[in-house]
């Protein structure tokens, strides 16, 4: 029976070969070829000029991931302490925004952060802008919020926060309560219970949360274009330009994609290695 059932995978294996493996091979081929089809390494040599974009992308994505973790971990932790009814509703509420396309949500932030947008109007009404002008002796009509790096980070945090909460929550909620009780009985205070028991045991959730936030953040292009106004070019924008934008150069685009993919894979591998070590330490 086992062998017969395993034949069920054959169609999907063929599908994967065609639409998962072959496309990646295409990216590799393109990355190493010139516009006329010959072998070249010049695509990678050109990338030095974009070093600033690489650093900016990784910097913003790291900040966004850190903020997501700082918000998402406590949320998951607090949620897991509530009753089952509350947990169910809270989960639905966290999932719900994901069902509206993320462009709709990002678009809404545009009108909130605009120079004469809702937030600036609110600041005007409560006199925050006047206060700021008085204190710092400036003459601002509004706070510049849109088209800044801060706005891009905000967009990333807003869109990807659920990706941080869901995996952490699903790990914390399954934690064995007797472990925590045992730690208490053995004299650990609540700080120690958290640091020595809950935190290490929830680490797998944290790691997958970090991955799920960092990868889309570092490669986004719609958020940076809508909230960064196109001034804060990110890796995603750079790749998009090479394929569908003005600077048509799919070979360079493929090379950038390849390098980004490799960096991300290496980061994830190192992180998971580190995570596995931690887990084993806890087991022992």
């Amino acid at each position: 029976m086992k062998n017969k059932l395993s034949r069920l995978t054959i169609p999907y294996v063929i599908w994967m070969a065609l639409f998962v493996v072959a496309p990646i091979i295409m990216v590799v081929i393109y990355a190493f070829s010139s516009a006329d089809g010959g072998f070249t390494l010049s695509n990678f040599a050109k990338m030095g000029t974009y070093a600033v974009v690489f650093t900016r992308s990784f910097k913003l994505a790291l900040i966004a991931t850190a903020i997501c973790l700082l918000i998402g971990y406590p949320v998951s932790y607090i949620m897991s302490k509530e009753g089952p009814r509350f947990q169910r509703i809270a989960m639905v509420l966290i999932m719900l925004p994901m069902w509206m396309n993320f462009l709709l949500r990002t678009y809404s932030w545009m009108s909130i952060l605009e120079n004469n947008g809702l937030l600036n109007q609110l600041f005007q009404k409560i006199g925050l802008i006047a206060l700021y002008n008085n204190v710092f002796g400036t003459d601002l009509q509004f706070f510049r919020m849109i088209n800044t790096q801060g706005a891009v980070v905000l967009g990333m945090v807003y869109n990807y926060l659920p990706f941080m909460i869901l995996p952490i929550y699903s790990v914390i909620v399954k934690l064995d309560n007797s472990l925590i009780e045992a730690a208490r009985d053995l004299g650990a205070n609540s700080v120690n219970v958290f640091r020595r028991v809950i935190l290490p045991l929830s680490l797998p959730g944290v790691l997958s949360g970090i991955t799920m936030v960092f990868v889309p953040s570092v490669s986004t292009f719609a958020i940076s274009k809508m909230l960064g106004g196109g001034t804060e070019l990110l890796l995603g924008d750079l790749i998009e330009q090479q394929f569908l934008g003005g600077a048509y150069n799919p070979q360079l685009g493929a090379a950038i994609s390849l390098v980004m993919m490799i960096i991300v894979v290496v980061c994830m591998w190192v992180m998971n290695r580190f995570g596995e070590g931690e887990e084993q330490a806890v087991m022992m």
Partner: peptide
Amino acid sequence: KVREPLLTVNNIPMMNADIVTGVSLCLL
């Protein structure tokens, strides 16, 4: 032995950045 490598390939679209998946399919 057969399953593990296949599952790794299966995970690629989930692990990869969306833009890499999109671009690679576009090239294909």
